[in-house]
Design a protein around this nucleic acid. Sequence first.
DNA 1: CATGAATGAGGGTTCATTCAT
DNA 2: AATGAATGAACCCTCATTCAT
Lengths: 207, 207, 207, 207
Amino acid sequence: MAYRSSDKTRQKKDAKRTAMMQAAVQVFAESGYHAATVRDIVKASDVAIGTFYFYFPDKETLFVHLYEETADFLLQTIDQAIRSRSELAQQFSRGIQAYVNIAVFEPAVVRLLLVGGVGAIPSLEIKRSNFRERMVRLWQRPLDQAIDTGTIPNQNGRRVAEAFAGAFDEVILQLLAMPEPDMEAAAVVQELTLFSLRAVAYKGTPP
Amino acid sequence: MAYRSSDKTRQKKDAKRTAMMQAAVQVFAESGYHAATVRDIVKASDVAIGTFYFYFPDKETLFVHLYEETADFLLQTIDQAIRSRSELAQQFSRGIQAYVNIAVFEPAVVRLLLVGGVGAIPSLEIKRSNFRERMVRLWQRPLDQAIDTGTIPNQNGRRVAEAFAGAFDEVILQLLAMPEPDMEAAAVVQELTLFSLRAVAYKGTPP
Amino acid sequence: MAYRSSDKTRQKKDAKRTAMMQAAVQVFAESGYHAATVRDIVKASDVAIGTFYFYFPDKETLFVHLYEETADFLLQTIDQAIRSRSELAQQFSRGIQAYVNIAVFEPAVVRLLLVGGVGAIPSLEIKRSNFRERMVRLWQRPLDQAIDTGTIPNQNGRRVAEAFAGAFDEVILQLLAMPEPDMEAAAVVQELTLFSLRAVAYKGTPP
Amino acid sequence: MAYRSSDKTRQKKDAKRTAMMQAAVQVFAESGYHAATVRDIVKASDVAIGTFYFYFPDKETLFVHLYEETADFLLQTIDQAIRSRSELAQQFSRGIQAYVNIAVFEPAVVRLLLVGGVGAIPSLEIKRSNFRERMVRLWQRPLDQAIDTGTIPNQNGRRVAEAFAGAFDEVILQLLAMPEPDMEAAAVVQELTLFSLRAVAYKGTPP
DNA sequence: CATGAATGAGGGTTCATTCAT
DNA sequence: AATGAATGAACCCTCATTCAT
């Protein structure tokens, strides 16, 4: 009694937790795991340091959680974009589009995944390689399908997918390093799409 | 006599210094900048901690210096390999070969550059983007030449070079994650070469 | 009506307060002052942390209060048992019996007094030495009387009482450390009684 | 070379370690484990906080080590005093004498053992009960011998030894609470000896 | 030159306490 | 009355760096 709990209170608490997590993503993305201090995060969230430990068990757990959540979000978003089409050229076009979109609108998400977690923690290394693996598989699936259906000539789908994963990451990171990433986004999407189609010796008409 | 003695001393000093730097490269590559402690480095060098500060001003300076030196070594080695040939296909083949070679024989060098310096230090960020920039230019030069001479169709040489840089890095990192990288090295070189030639719509005969 | 209502309220409030204090005694006895957290106490009382501070000003004050209250209870119970008899042997027998009873039925009370408050807080030190002092005096009174009446030979009543206080505490603590203290309780009472009577060179017939 | 190590340096280091441990004993004895902070200890040793961690792995380990070392010292000293004689009265006289001596000359040692470690740490609880156990056995040995040889009547040697252990502790703690413990020391020894001999119904001539 | 004892700023975390609801 | 989210002082500990020997 008293305190009509589980209604507005709970919502507010969840909102705050979410806000703190977003702030944490920014800070981790900016400085990387080690350089980012809990004090930095609470400063960015405008709360006291004790509040951090009210919402999260510790810095490491939060980071790993954020990393996984963010990885899932990125991978699922791209995956859905790819799966929304059945033609290879469309699949790449959409997938790259989705990736670039996230990079432009949520640059911290991409930075967290690509640079924030590097060399962070032993316990994260496995998550990281897991993320890389899933990223590679993301691009490998449409490739293998296209090889099966004869849309593209036979090739090492796995290795090509690795190359794509690395290529897209680098180009997107370079894009984010520019003063106005959104200006270039469309061009990047198109060029990467054509690049990838050429790289797999795709003979159909590009999108 | 005197100059010889001082010469020897100098040599000895340089030898120790070099040994410590090599140990440091290993440690930094292994753990990343923050997780690597000065104590780890001196332990690996089998000297006292004071000795470290006799040879190097501080951890950060050493790291930055190592990063630059290592970057120079990698870039120059690849660059020379590329410049040793004049035909695009050969240039890529040799360049990739050189990169893979370094990765297989000096994995710490590659790890230091690709992961050890990520999110390490603000003062390193500029060196890192510098390194990325030079890496991109490395591949862009032969591309632009080939475009100029009509060997390959017109395309955004810069962007394609970025994609290559990222692609090669990722594939090489994946190679290093395998149990016996040297077993796969030759295949990786060939596949990456073909990949890159297809990606630029090269019509000549592959090497 | 009004006074009854407020009466009920008062009763309810007191009941809750009492319940919390009992829970606190258990927690303090279990972990000691420092290791016991306010959160432990409210968890054991099944109330919110704010409620704790509604009933008690702070952790330290509660602990001191609990300590004093518990000390009073223990000392008075033993004292009454002693005063219920006029013969030395009976007095010791009854006093020891009372002490052992409390230990068996309210072990937390004994633990709180004997170990929970040790090295807890500067402000408690005086209460602790006070408790020890009263405990000593408890046993000293019948001793001095017996010396006065010639029941036992002359001796340093104070020092002997100190020895008894310490002896009883230790034996009782050892008893509480056993798996089933109540099994041994009767034997402990008898042995301690005989022990103490011998120690004061009592020549009458033991109880 | 340089630095004639393992001679003066090592001695100095050991001396400092010892000095810090003594300071730590004082601080732990004064405040108890939890209330004593590492900063208190280094302040008492007049060194920086890092120096503490150069010599000791952490607070807990040091405390446990100190506790064990101190316990061994106390128990062995008393044990030797007891074993130096073969007659019960002499054994108790000497043992008590040894205990009181330590209390007077090294009060912190006694305080650390009797109050400093109470409710400190789960990992210490076993050491504590171990210490109590050994303390009891210390007094039980001469008792059981005397019972065997018929020097004293049959009785529960274990329980009596517990009582003695508690009695001596309490009297000694009370002694240490006095303004000038050494003034009373001799009287305490004599009285406790007589007390214990009476308590076991010893009929020979007291020392 | 080389050593390693010594330093202390700063990081992660706990927990008694407050206060708006 | 009761709640529990929020606070921040203070704790333990690490590690880059210095300096007397």
